[in-house]
Amino acid sequence: MNKEDIFAIVTRHAQEVIPALRGHQFQPNQSLRELGANSIDRSEIVMMTLESLALRIPLVETVKATNIGELVNVLHAKL
């Protein structure tokens, strides 16, 4: 799985959690927070992504990422 695939999964789940983001053109340097995701939303989006990737890592390992691109990098490194 490459980073583009992971990016697609993250953004798909972001749109599920925040329907207002449907049709949004996501950029790696955007952060979920500035796109309107509160802390619970962000936890949900990441957890849904981990589930889709069957990636068993603690959520805490993803919190340092400050934008979507960094999150994708963290996840990609763990796969």
Binding site: I40, M47, R56, L59
Partner: peptide
């Protein structure tokens, strides 16, 4: 079979 993926909102 995969409790670690339980959605965070469950806790709320």
């Amino acid at each position: 079979e995969r409790p670690q993926f339980l959605r965070p909102t469950y806790g709320l």
